[in-house]
């Protein structure tokens, strides 16, 4: 990456630039609030923060149409917000409230939403890939021009389900966009300790799937790659693979003491913070004034505050409904 890689490109209008920034800020502030609420005991279970990786979800999501499908991981708050699930319903889900997007049953790791075709929130690493293949298979069999965007991390690449799914998707020429978020760590295991081949694109190419790496800290680059590649997938050329090279600033989960990496490594990545670099680029190119940025921050802060109020005011599903929806009938 060049130092100015995050610079706003000629193809990005001022308005769109501000939209991208706002979307990343929504995720950042939402998750910072979640960390606070976790400490306060309002959110329980496992909480995996996406902080540092926001450019990937925001950039990639620009390439999707409403009728497309999304399959994500257990680190999916960013994908959910960028896909259009409201902060209110997502926060209520974090609380486990009935008004949550999964009716409170899933929590942080299991976000579902039929309206935006958001099929999880899958907390089994690699488990979402076969499902994404099936969603795309249905589209192909029904002659629908839809794309299924499947997010997963570098950890999933070591799973058998990754290899089975890529092979099947190529064999059947299915419209799946495989979006690998390589943040270098599978929980605490650095990629060199887990992968005999650390060039993840090579693995996709070995299945004869087009693959390319993208700077995952650069929202404009993420969007450009996703749009270009998604159109090929939508056009019936078969699946494709993008490796977003990114970094997780926070611990794996709230229980992680981060014994496996030096603070200096995290600090070295901090200047590449996608929000920081993109804000700087917008300012430097005269696309955002201090006033505009302040207004943007206020809007986002308000949205998150409202979401917390919404979640606080939410209700608990009655215990009598415990067994509801195990089966349809």
């Amino acid at each position: 990456m060049t130092p100015d890689a995050a610079g706003i490109s000629p193809n990005v209008t001022r308005e769109h630039g501000l939209t991208l920034l706002r979307e990343m800020l929504r995720i950042r502030r939402f998750e910072e609030k979640c960390a606070e609420l976790y400490s306060a005991g309002k959110i329980r279970g496992f909480l995996h923060l996406y902080i540092g990786e926001e450019a990937v979800a925001v950039g990639a999501m620009q390439a999707l149409a409403p009728e497309d499908a999304v399959v994500a991981t257990y680190r999916e708050h960013g994908h959910a917000l960028a896909r259009g699930i409201s902060a209110d319903r997502l926060m209520a889900e974090m609380y486990g409230k009935h008004e949550g997007c999964s009716r409170g049953r899933g929590g942080s790791m299991h976000v579902f939403d039929a309206d935006t075709r958001f099929y999880g929130g899958n907390a089994i690493v690699g488990g979402g890939l076969p499902v994404a293949v099936g969603l795309a298979l249905a589209d192909r069999m029904q002659n629908r021009r839809r794309v299924t965007a499947c997010f997963f991390g570098d950890g999933a690449v070591a799973e058998g389900e990754f290899h089975e799914s890529l092979n099947l998707a190529v064999l059947w020429k299915l419209p799946v966009l495989f979006l690998c978020e390589n943040n270098l760590y599978a929980m605490g295991t650095r990629i060199e300790r887990a992968q005999s081949q650390v060039d993840l694109c090579e693995k996709a190419r070995s299945y004869r799937m087009p693959a390319e790496p993208v700077d995952g800290m650069d929202v404009v680059a993420c969007e450009a790659a996703a749009r270009r590649i998604a159109e090929r997938v939508r056009g019936g050329e078969g699946p494709a693979f993008i490796e977003f090279q990114t970094y997780r600033f926070r611990a794996h989960s709230m229980f992680d003491a981060e014994l496996y990496r030096d603070k200096s490594e995290v600090d070295a990545w901090k200047p590449r913070d996608p929000i920081l670099t993109f804000t700087t680029a917008l300012e430097a190119s005269g696309n955002a004034t201090d006033d505009q940025l302040a207004a943007l921050n206020r809007t986002v802060a308000d949205e998150i505050a409202t979401a917390v109020q919404f979640a606080e005011a939410g209700t608990w599903e009655p215990v009598e409904d415990l067994l509801k929806d195990v089966y349809t009938r």
Binding site: V131, L135, A136, M141, E164, L168
Partner: peptide, 13 residues
Amino acid sequence: SAFVGAGIGAALA
């Protein structure tokens, strides 16, 4: 795993 999962995904869609 892939084709059973694909069945699940296709059913979802």
